[in-house]
Amino acid sequence: MLIVMAGLPAAGKSSVAERLGRALPAAVVPVDPIEAAMWSAGVDRGQPTGLAAYLVAEAVADGVLALGQSVIIDAVNAVEAARQQWRTLADRHRVPVVFVEVVCSDLRVHQQRLERRSRGIVGFEEPTWQAIQERRAEYEPWTEHRLVLDSIADLASNVTKAQEHLTEAAQPPQPAS
């Protein structure tokens, strides 16, 4: 199965992805450390490293899926082109793709989380609250079903909801009676 996390920075998607990765188990492929590694290797920040990081994440996920293992992509996935990238990968491996969007319905809490977080990704600067607001304005509407989790709820509850949703998604469709 290909599980694709989505949501704005600091909404809580990485926390859900990490817990799900341990519980399933599934490999978690986060895009931000990939991009930071490119910069560390000397790739100029003026280059389209965000796009390149998505492509590297796709290549890693492709290898994991080829081994018959589940993988979780941890990225913003704000635009339809990114979401289509994951649908195409899942189709190539004939596995289900499940989108899980994490939101934070309380903007004040979301901003506080951003300002307090320190993920320890060497060379990766956290976005500003202004940058997240700009991203929010550019976030494209969804065209397909997804599980939406609100990170105002406790993490354990959200992970349980995600696990239940994934279990349902893994079931083959039942013939009409």
Rank of each mutant, 00 (worst) to 15 (best):
R19V: 08
I72K: 05
A52Y: 02
S40W: 08
H165R: 09
L89Q: 07
H93W: 01
C104P: 09
A81P: 04
A90V: 09
V71Y: 00
L65W: 00
V103I: 13
T143L: 13
A23P: 06
A170L: 12
Q133P: 08
T88H: 04
R92V: 02
V28Y: 00
E168M: 12
V103E: 05
I73E: 08
P25S: 09
L24Q: 04
I152Y: 07
T143D: 14
A36I: 06
M38D: 11
I132M: 10
K13P: 00
W86M: 06
A156G: 03
E101L: 13
G7K: 12
G7L: 08
V79E: 14
F99D: 04
I34H: 08
A170K: 10
R116P: 03
K13V: 01
N77L: 08
H93Q: 04
G46S: 10
R19N: 15
M38Y: 09
S15I: 02
H145K: 11
E164D: 12
E101A: 13
Q174D: 07
Y54A: 06
T167A: 14
Y139M: 15
T49R: 15
V60P: 01
D91F: 04
V60R: 05
P175I: 11
P96Y: 05
L166P: 00
T160H: 12
R92E: 09
P48S: 10
G7W: 03
V102N: 01
P172A: 11
G46D: 08
R19C: 14
T160F: 09
T167W: 02
D62S: 05
E58M: 11
G63T: 08
Q84K: 14
I152F: 13
V29N: 07
T167S: 11
A61G: 04
F124P: 00
G50L: 08
R116D: 15
K161N: 13
S177W: 12
R83C: 10
A131L: 14
E138P: 02
G50Q: 03
A41E: 10
S15R: 11
S15G: 06
I73V: 13
K13A: 01
A131N: 03
V71D: 00
A57C: 05
V16E: 09
A36Y: 08
R135P: 00
R146S: 07
T49S: 14
T49E: 01
